[in-house]
Amino acid sequence: MHLHLLQHSPHHGPGRIVDWLTSMGHSHTVFHLHDGETPPSLADGDALILLDGPMDILDDARYPWLKRERKLIAKALDGNKPLLGIGMGAKMIAAELGATVGRGTYAEVGWHEVTLAPESPFDLPEQFTAFMWHRDVFALPDDALPLGGSLGSPVQGFAWDAGRALGLLCHFEVTHASVSELLANGEQPEGSEASPHAQPAASILADGRRFDRLAPLLDRLLSQWLRSAPA
C-alpha cells in the first residue's frame, strides 16, 4: 500500500509511523502543508494519515491550506479508503463527522493512563499509558465507537465505519527524539503551566522505556486499521 501523510508543523512529525510502514512493506509520502506543499489527490494513495499540529482547525485566514484539507477529509470519509487522524488530525475528522470540537477544561501534557471503553473496538490493553499534547478535545461523533478516556479527557479517540476511520487524541507514534524536539521547539498547549495534567519536560523524558512500550501498541493499532482497507 502507498500512504499519504499530512504534516501540519515542523515539530509534529510522523515519529515511529514511518519506520513501521517501511518494516511492513508499505511506501509513503509526507506532505508538509506547513511548508506550502499542496495536499495530495485522494486517488493517488491507498490510505491517509493526518498528523498533529498546534493550529486551530478553522483558522483558514492564517493557514489557507486547511480548507483544501477539509475537502480531502470529506472525500476520504465518503469513499472507502482508510483514514487516520492524530491530535489535530483527529479533531479535523471529528469536526467533519459533525462532532463538537472545543477547548478542554485542562491541558494534558506528558504520560497519562487511558482506560479502554467497554464498547471499544480497538485491539489494545484495557489500560495503557500514552503520550498527550493537547488542550482542545472532541465529542464522540455519531455512529462512532469510543477508544476510551483519561482523567483529563473522557474521549481519547474513536473508530468510525467499522474502523476504517480512526481518530486519536493521544499519541502512540512518538519517540524520545520527536518529543525532545517538540519540547525544545513547540509551544506547549494553552494552560499547561496551571494544569494538574501537565508534566514538566524532565519528567516526560526521564524514562525512555515509556517510548519503547508504545511501539507494540502502535503496531496493533496500525495493523488493525489497515485491515479495514478494501481487498
Rank of each mutant, 00 (worst) to 15 (best):
M1Y: 06
H2A: 09
H4L: 12
H4T: 08
L6C: 05
L6N: 00
Q7F: 08
P14W: 04
P14Y: 09
G15C: 13
W20Y: 14
L21K: 03
H26V: 04
S27W: 02
H28Y: 13
H28S: 06
V30Y: 00
H34W: 15
A43E: 15
G45A: 15
L51T: 11
G53M: 01
G53A: 01
I57C: 03
I57L: 13
D60S: 12
A61Y: 11
W65C: 07
L66V: 00
R68L: 11
R68C: 06
K71M: 11
A76W: 02
A76P: 01
N80Q: 15
L84G: 02
I86L: 08
A90R: 00
K91S: 14
A94L: 04
A94P: 01
A94R: 01
A95V: 06
L97V: 03
A99K: 12
T100L: 12
V101S: 00
G102L: 02
G104V: 01
G104E: 01
V109Q: 11
E113D: 14
T115N: 09
L116I: 00
A117P: 09
P118N: 15
P125G: 09
F128T: 02
A130Q: 09
A130T: 15
M132A: 14
H134A: 10
F138H: 00
L140R: 08
L140Q: 07
D142F: 14
D143H: 14
A144K: 08
L145M: 10
P146L: 08
L147S: 02
G149D: 01
G149P: 00
G163D: 14
F172M: 12
F172Q: 05
E173T: 06
H176Q: 13
A177N: 12
S178C: 09
S180L: 10
A184R: 13
A184D: 14
P189R: 01
G191H: 02
S192A: 15
S192C: 10
A194K: 04
S195G: 02
P196F: 10
Q199R: 02
P200N: 09
P200L: 04
S203D: 15
A206V: 08
L214Q: 14
L218F: 09
L218M: 12
Q224F: 07
Q224I: 04
R227Y: 02
